[in-house]
């Protein structure tokens, strides 16, 4: 307790050195793993107690492309993500509208229901989804895997969109009606532009969720629908750390792109948004 007190006290007193040491360690522990992967993916003969690889090579990337058919796998991942995002958004807009703007008895219950999948370990319903999809022959199809992803992505979309739609100013809609716009025009010229940032946020998040999804993919994939995370997992199992690293670097690029977009377009706090009511 006393130690903790000294520790906190020193932080509060603004001892810059300590604070920056703390931040430096924090930055290192977050970024260094990626640097290590990066080095591993271009290093050759990196054995023993060496800080840096003795030789550089792009062989592992070639391997990744040739042996693991990474382009095909990336394409699979993207197709699945696009389908999952599309379905989730199409579910999210009307449901978000209903939850955000219409008076619904038992709205809290409904919201809790939609959040429920996030409270149950994914592996628990992934088991059920796998069994159902086997029966419906949805396993090993792009659509099937994407549909499994929707189970995770749709609650995200609904959350983000209902919050956005709830935030719409009633007066703006009334003003539009007063100006003589019919419902159709109001929707396309007033509502859509207003909720577009919300839709974008929702798309970014659902895309990231689907792109990174592992559990549900592992339960529903087949040899034609291997995605990047699953392939990385398999590669780790095969023990080719260098090739795995090369694949990881390829897998991480879109994430960095997404990070860049999030940072510019939406506040990072929204990543966990919508859980205040939990």
């Amino acid at each position: 307790m006393n130690l903790l007190r000294i520790y906190v006290k020193s932080i509060l007193r603004g001892r810059k050195v300590l604070i920056y040491t703390f931040l430096l360690c924090f930055g290192l522990i977050i970024y260094v793993p990626f640097i290590v992967i990066m080095l591993r993916s271009v290093g050759k003969n990196w054995f023993g107690r060496l800080w840096l690889p003795p030789e550089l090579t792009l062989d592992w990337y070639r391997w990744a492309v040739e042996v693991t058919k990474i382009f095909r796998i990336t394409l699979n991942t993207l197709i699945i993500a696009v389908i999952a995002v599309a379905i989730s958004t199409l579910i999210g807009i009307p449901t978000g509208w209903a939850l955000g703007r219409r008076k619904i008895p038992g709205k809290e219950l409904l919201m809790a229901m939609i959040l429920l999948p996030r409270m149950i370990p994914p592996i628990a319903y992934a088991l059920g989804i796998a069994q159902v999809f086997y029966r419906l022959h949805l396993v090993n199809t792009h659509f099937g895997v994407a549909l499994a992803h929707v189970a995770i992505c749709a609650p995200y979309a609904i959350l983000v969109l209902s919050a956005t739609i709830e935030g719409l100013d009633e007066r703006v809609l009334e003003a539009s009606a007063v100006c003589g716009a019919n419902r159709f025009k109001t929707f396309f010229h007033v509502i859509l532009p207003l909720i577009l940032p919300g839709i974008l946020t929702s798309i970014i998040f659902t895309f990231t969720a689907s792109y990174n999804e592992f559990t549900l993919t592992l339960m529903t994939y087949g040899k034609d629908t291997v995605t990047l995370p699953v392939r990385t997992y398999l590669a780790i199992g095969e023990g080719y750390w260098e090739v795995t690293s090369a694949m990881s670097i390829i897998l991480v690029i879109p994430s960095i792109f997404v990070l860049f977009m999030i940072q510019r377009q939406v506040t990072p706090e929204k990543l966990v948004g919508g859980f205040k009511g939990l």
Partner: peptide
């Protein structure tokens, strides 16, 4: 992706 973090 979590897998990559873990790998790193």
């Amino acid at each position: 992706p979590g897998l990559i973090g873990a790998l790193g």
